[in-house]
Every structure is written in C-alpha cells, then in structure tokens.
Amino acid sequence: MEELKAGSFFGQTNRTFHLDGILLTDTEYTVDKVDWHYHENAYFTFILAGQILEGNRKEKYHCAPGSLLFHNWQEPHYNIKPEGYTRGFHLEIQKEWFRELLPDSEVAEGSMQIDNPTVKLLFYQIFKETRLQDTLLYPAVESLLLQAFTTLLPQERKVYKNPPWVARLKELLHDRYPDTLSLKTLAAEVNIHPVHLSRDFPKYFHCSLGDYIRKVRTQKSFSLFYDKERSLTEIALQCGFSDQSHFTRSFKALNGLTPSAFRKIMLER
C-alpha cells in the first residue's frame, strides 16, 4: 500500500503553503480511481467543487461541494472521482503540532465526516486566507484551525449526551434549509415542546437556533458559487434567504466579505 508524503495528493496541485506544522494544498482531482493508500500526516479534506467518493475499511463518504472529512495519520482509504471538474483543499497537520498546541486532547482515530456548519465556515475562511497571501497567513490559519478543534473536541466544553431528537433536528435543519422554519413546526417534527427545544438547543448545538440556521444556509451557498450560470440572487433564494440583500448581510457577518468577493476568490486557481 502506497504512503503519500506531506503535500502529496493525486491530481494537479495549484498551490501549496508550508507553515510551521501545517501544510495547505489546493488540488484539482484528475485521477478517476485511486487505489488503497494512506498519508503520512493527519489531514482534513475540504471539497470545494465537484464530487468524489471516498471509502475506508468501515464506510464510504459521498462528498459534494462543502463536504469536510478528517483522516488521522496512516488511515487507509481509496477514492473514486466521477466525471467532471473536482477540486479539494487539504490541510495537513504534523504530530508535533498536536503535541505542542493540543497536548491533552485526543484526536479521533480513523476517518470521520464533519457536518458542523461552524467548522465548515472556518475552513472556508482558512481557504480565503490562502488567497490573500499576506504575512498574516500562519497566525490566521493556526487561529482558525484551533477554533475548529475547540468546536470538535469534546473535552473543550461540557458534553451532554444527545437525546434522539437532536439527530432528527439536525437532519431537518440541513435538509430543509430553504424552507420557512418556525420553532413550533420544528418542535412538532421532533416531538418535543417548543419551550423544551428553545431552552435545550444551545446545549447540543452550541449557538442559538437562529445562528445555526444562518450558518447552514450560508455554508450551503458556497457549494453553488462554482455554477457561473447562477446569479447571487438565485443562490440567495435557493439557500433560504428572503433576498440578496439579506444574504449579503448574513454572509458578510459570518465571513468578513460579501458573497461576490468570496465567489471571486473561490473561482481563482
């Protein structure tokens, strides 16, 4: 089985950034099928455009734009790329970085798919930092990465065991983000009282219901930016925003740039 050294991925590498303990790689996937292999470093794969199927010994991940996977070091897996343009952004992390900055944290073994919209938005911001190419790249990326791990690692906050309604509610919020959602409707869908839902939502989602929905809708919009035929107004409406103005305000509040500015960054190679 082939081991890929730091910075090596199957495809055409557009840009690589070597930071202290962190390596960033922007890759266009050009190989239809990649046999079993593993990587020297732990890393995140963030799909910016296109589709890819990735499998390991336990499960398969069908990755669309906006999909985020984490792989621990030396985790065997394979890839299948459907026809069409596919682009991925990789963030590799050396063991020394973990030992120095997260010495008491246990990083998940194997691979996992991450659907937390807060973490995904952080990765879009990391990608944005690589396009700015200024002297703040390393501290900006490291800060954003630590925010992501703070969100993901359970020991960073009080952990509540998820009741069954949490998984169902998360599914509703991710699958029906364009719908007009009311607290009463959501509570009825998961069979709990609206007061119970509003009180307990922050325990399990670590933000308010409104903030979570805005993050989901904004994160979904990124996956549509590569479709040049879609206007920003069409994207706004498809993602559940009432109009482009509302979309722009929410997007800029979360990402620091307007949708048009961020779309321009994502389309660059």
Rank of each mutant, 00 (worst) to 15 (best):
V159C: 06
V107Y: 02
Q133H: 04
K158D: 12
N56R: 10
A188K: 14
A49S: 15
Y212Q: 03
A261P: 01
E189G: 02
S143C: 05
A42V: 07
R99H: 09
L169S: 07
I192S: 04
S250Q: 10
H71K: 03
Y138G: 02
E54Q: 13
E234H: 03
K95P: 10
T180N: 13
K264S: 10
F222G: 04
K170L: 08
T135L: 15
G50L: 12
D20H: 03
T135H: 13
F149M: 03
T150V: 05
K161W: 08
D175I: 02
I80E: 15
Y43W: 02
F127V: 05
E54P: 00
T180E: 14
Q133D: 12
G50W: 11
W165H: 07
L183Q: 11
Y160W: 15
Q133P: 01
Y38K: 11
R57N: 11
E109S: 11
S67E: 11
K60G: 06
A6G: 07
L102V: 00
N162P: 00
G88N: 01
S182F: 10
E229C: 02
F127A: 02
D211E: 13
Q94F: 07
L19Q: 04
R214D: 06
G240F: 00
A167Q: 15
P139H: 09
W97D: 02
K252D: 03
Y124T: 10
Y226C: 05
I47M: 14
S105Q: 08
C239N: 09
T16H: 05
G88Y: 01
K81G: 01
H39W: 00
L172I: 14
E96C: 00
E234S: 10
C239S: 10
N56S: 12
A42T: 11
E234K: 09
Y226E: 10
F225G: 05
F149P: 02
A49F: 05
R168D: 12
F9P: 02
N14L: 12
D211W: 01
I93Y: 04
H206C: 07
Q244F: 03
S182M: 08
D211I: 03
T130E: 01
N79G: 06
L153G: 05
K252C: 09
A108N: 13
K5T: 12
E156I: 08
F127Q: 01
D227Q: 10
L267W: 09
